[in-house]
Amino acid sequence: MRDQERWGLVALGLLATAGGVVLAIREFEPTTPGSDPGTLVSLVGVGGLAAAAWLVYDRSRSRRDPVPWSNAGPIVRSDPEDAPRRYPLSGSRLAGILVDARAAARDRREVEDGLAVVRPLLRTAYCEAAVAGGQDRSAATEALDAGTWTDDRVAASVLSPHVDPPTRSLRRRFRDWLYPGRAVTRRTVRAVSAVATAGDAAIAPVIGSDAPRRAETYEPSLAVRDVGGDGRVRDLTGGREPDDGGRVEGDRRGGRRGAAAGREGAQ
């Protein structure tokens, strides 16, 4: 039916209903029925029953149309911003090693055990950089063992079993005992940063490393690099809109867990 017809019918119906109601209930006294609990109970009961009946009836219809507030559903069925992931990400070797390191640390609740798993990779990286910069390999190894390659004692203790980390407060020690895996991750991230700084200082600069970047640079955000430095899945946005109207089994959990992991790994 056309718009005007509908408008007319609606107005008429509204007027008739309102007028009839007004005239009909003129006779009702404004009552104070609150003192009668029976009425209240029956009221609630009837209302609840009616609502439940309607909702159950509605549910059978809603199975066809899962999103109740939008008749035709979402305009797009899936996230247009995303694309299928075909190739592995770069720089994910450390993440795999960290998973093993954390498991090793949890075995005997010793952070040292976990660091021993990560140590060879970091030592190799530093030694390679030192040798490429002209140092003697044995001198570099000695510097690693003695911890003189950096000012950061925590990093030095990660790369050498002979260097003790600085004394931490009892609270920190308790936390490391409770969560040895996280302690391994924290110290490894710190050690990697120190190794990168020291290594970059050692090697001769290559043309282009600090060339001007004239074009707009878009770094892949942490959200999309799904194997972060701590090896955990970190899809921080989790922004996929499901088309079943809300039954999101894993996404949002991934979002929040991911957020925790993101804060965790960034320490």
Partner: peptide, 19 residues
């Protein structure tokens, strides 16, 4: 009273049909 109730019911039916 009853005429008015009838009017109200009719109005509601018309409205429901329109909707």
């Amino acid at each position: 009273g009853w005429t008015a109730v009838g009017l109200a019911a009719l109005g509601a039916i018309v409205l429901a049909v329109a909707v």
